[in-house]
């Protein structure tokens, strides 16, 4: 067995370092070796892979964006289900009201306010005030009306169809009904009548 002390340096290294006749050839080789090492660490291809992630740019496409515009007339795979969900009101229960409340507080409170009186913080900052849900006209309005306003917008209010799923629109409508009942001071169990 060889002692570690007299083990020769790796043959490749010996060849490399002793190969040249002149010191400058040797230096050149070492330099080349260092350069290779530098290059290997510089091309870290896996960090920037030639694949498209959301929001990466793609020169081949319109506007240099990775997301392509959907061609006119395209029908989404789940389009029939979405249309069906928009047409059929779900059963109003506690879970639907909870969902409605959560969604209402994300998308509607900034303008309509927590209690639906049209006094949200954005209105305080100068947005045209929406009507209070306590108005007789809106109390009498069917749930479909609220779903329709969310889907298509109303006056200066934009459509929220891109952000609120069809089922959630019904959930919000049910929650607005619950707000109206609570606002009228009725002690009725909101769950029972909210689907009206």
């Amino acid at each position: 067995m060889r002692q570690p002390s007299d083990s020769p340096p790796a043959p490749a290294l010996v060849a490399l370092l002793s190969g040249g006749q002149w010191p400058c050839a040797r230096a050149a080789r070492i330099l080349a070796l260092l350069l290779c090492a530098g290059l290997v660490s510089a091309c870290n291809d896996m960090v920037e892979q030639p694949k498209l992630k959301p929001y990466s740019s793609a020169e081949a496409f319109d506007q240099n964006a990775e997301a392509r515009a959907i061609p006119f007339g395209t029908v989404a795979r789940d389009e029939p289900e979405r249309i069906a969900a928009l047409r059929t009101p779900p059963k109003v229960d506690a879970a639907l009201l909870d969902r409605g409340r959560a969604q209402y507080e994300i998308y509607c409170t900034p303008c309509h306010g927590l209690a639906g009186r049209g006094d949200g913080i954005i209105v305080e900052r100068g947005f045209p005030p929406p009507p209070s849900y306590m108005e007789p006209r809106l109390r009498a309005a069917p749930a479909e009306h609220f779903v329709d306003v969310i889907t298509n917008g109303w006056g200066v209010m934009y459509s929220y169809a891109a952000r609120v799923e069809p089922r959630d629109r019904w959930a919000i409508a049910a929650y607005i009904r619950a707000l109206q009942l609570a606002g009228a001071g009725e002690m009725a169990d909101a769950g029972g009548e909210a689907g009206r």
Partner: peptide, 16 residues
Amino acid sequence: AGLPPTETCMTCHSQI
């Protein structure tokens, strides 16, 4: 997570 499209800003900034 999604970054908001221009339309989302405009839900408010079309008026204020």
